[in-house]
């Protein structure tokens, strides 16, 4: 038995990332390393800068300072912030994926489920209808959507199904890094559980790395290996997820953890 993580290099290395909205801080001086197969959670309340950080990392927002170094398939680290837009967009549909909180931001609502799932494949050159459809069916199955729904539009799906469809659409090209913004937000608790189970299985089977932004501490406890706590745009604490939650060091984290309702 051999462990995956230690002998492979860093996948994503963030150095001194800062983003300002005029005089206001979006996020300031954020640094961390993410290794293959690791899931990192970012928690904090609304306005803490966690979504700003995620969008800067994914290249959706321009960044003021810092580096986001990503290890390409050729092995070299490259600063994605210095990449040309075509390169970055290519990354965004091959090695990277982004799962939005609201499925409708990440889906084409006027295109069938199969078309949604197949788009990334077609975007990278797949031109065989039968093969595209077969892998769409395979992926719908993996996110527990029945094959006979393949030609339905996402508007006919429940919120949980839409979210699972969005995940299938993102993971079909086998990305190595997935950014998730509140992936279980706005879903019923029972639906959340199903989605969490699904995500954990996919992360394990595909060896995915992920950065997950959420305000739900229960979600990060179950999904994330490591945790980063943000407040007012600053990182106030990082560490192993269970350590940060069970033995928080910073006053803000202690407050956050003690504010969670016990069930």
């Amino acid at each position: 038995m051999k462990d995956m993580a230690p002998d492979t290099g860093v996948l994503l290395s963030v150095r001194g990332l800062s983003k300002f909205y005029g005089p206001r801080i979006g996020c300031k001086d954020v640094s961390f390393d993410l290794y293959p197969g690791e899931v990192m959670g970012i928690v904090g309340e609304s306005g803490s800068g966690k979504s700003t950080l995620l969008n800067c990392l994914a290249g959706h927002l321009p960044t003021d300072h810092g580096e986001v170094l990503f290890s390409g398939r050729d092995g070299g680290l490259r600063d994605t912030l210095q990449m040309s837009e075509p390169e970055r967009r290519m990354l965004g549909r091959t090695d990277w994926a982004f799962v939005h909180q609201h499925a409708r931001d990440g889906l084409r609502m006027n295109v069938s489920a199969g078309g949604n799932v197949g788009e990334r494949q077609m975007a990278v050159g797949a031109r065989h209808y039968g093969a595209i459809r077969d892998s769409a069916i395979d992926w719908l199955g993996r996110v527990e959507i029945a094959e006979d729904r393949i030609d339905d539009r996402p508007t006919a799906f429940s919120g949980g199904m839409q979210q699972r469809l969005q995940i299938a659409r993102n993971l079909i090209t086998g990305p190595r890094l997935v950014f998730m913004d509140e992936p279980t937000g706005g879903l019923d608790v029972s639906v959340q559980a199903r989605l969490l189970d699904l995500l954990r299985g996919l992360v394990r089977e595909m060896g995915l790395s992920a950065v997950i932004v959420t305000h739900d501490l229960a979600v990060v406890r179950l999904l994330a290996d490591r945790l980063m706590v943000m407040k007012d745009g600053h990182v106030v604490e990082t560490g192993l997820t269970d350590q940060v939650l069970d033995d928080p060091q910073h006053g803000y984290t202690q407050l956050l953890v003690s504010s969670v309702l016990q069930v």
């Binding site: 967009r89 199969g114 078309g115 077609m122 975007a123 990278v124 209808y129």
Partner: peptide, 14 residues
């Protein structure tokens, strides 16, 4: 980025 164009044709066939 023309993947979308094939999505349209995919939808036609489906």
């Amino acid at each position: 980025e023309y993947g979308l164009m094939h999505v349209k044709l995919y939808e036609d066939i489906s």
